[in-house]
């Protein structure tokens, strides 16, 4: 077991709040949502587990010392990715493909999918094909396939989650750039800062630099 403080990246004399903040930051970083359909989901899951254990241990130690603290570990991605191709979603016609994807045998899964004739390609087929392409890094076609799966079966929660995920990624929620969201120094601008900056820009025309401390 590695030193839990090292895992959390805080000194042993950090306050409870600092420990909690460090834990939250790491939990966000390795959150299964970031690794849905990624071939690295298992590695992120291990990291998440390590972070959860470290945090639990620190909290336990501190509670025994009577310094308080509350436990609340986030879920871990485990080994299968957060959508879990468990096949328990009601009458899956592609059990074999799901278990191949779960085992990381992407090209075998793809081979079976490609062997399905066009008339047998239902919403689930498009969803699984998208999942396979996504792992290979063919994000564009994966996006199109998830979207097709949702169109064919709009009520399916699994497909909608996958489609929502890629849509959010495209909008820059997981890194990148969104022209409709103001960015200042990568920390995300608040509305107040934005308006002050606009005011500052206007003021600059008249030679003033009014809010040098902002943003």
């Amino acid at each position: 077991m590695p030193d839990p403080y090292r895992v959390l990246g805080v000194p042993p004399n950090a306050t409870d709040e600092e420990v909690k903040a460090a834990y939250r930051k790491l939990a966000k970083k390795y959150h299964p949502d970031n690794y849905a359909d990624s071939p690295l989901a298992d590695l992120a899951g291990e990291k998440m587990k390590e972070v959860n254990e470290a945090y639990d241990q620190v909290v336990k130690e501190r509670r025994n010392r009577g310094t308080g603290g509350r436990s609340g570990p986030y879920g871990s991605a485990g080994t299968g990715g957060s959508y879990g191709y468990t096949g328990g979603t009601g009458g899956s016609g592609f059990e074999d493909v799901r278990s191949l994807i779960n085992a990381g045998r992407i090209s075998d899964a793809e081979q079976i999918l490609d062997g399905v004739p066009p008339e047998g390609r239902n919403a689930e087929w498009y969803f699984l094909k998208g999942a396979v392409l996504y792992r290979r890094g063919w994000l564009e076609e994966a996006y199109n396939d998830f979207s097709a799966a949702c169109r064919m079966d709009p009520s399916n929660v699994e497909y909608r989650a996958a489609y929502a995920q890629v849509t959010n990624q495209r909008n820059g929620m997981y890194g990148g750039y969104n022209p409709n969201v103001p960015q200042y120094g990568g920390f995300g601008g608040c509305d107040l800062c934005t308006s002050l900056c606009v005011a500052d820009l206007c003021c600059n025309c008249f030679g003033g630099d009014m809010y040098p401390w902002c943003c």
Binding site: K29, Y30, N34, Y35, S38, L40, L43, A44, K47, G137, L139, E140, Y143, V166, Q169, R170, N171, G172, M173, Y174, G175, G176, Y177, N178, P179
Partner: peptide, 21 residues
Amino acid sequence: RGYANGTLNQTLSQLGAAANL
């Protein structure tokens, strides 16, 4: 170009996920 930006964002989400590990 707007569409390309979305595709680039999607790619960066995966790049960032790998970088975090």
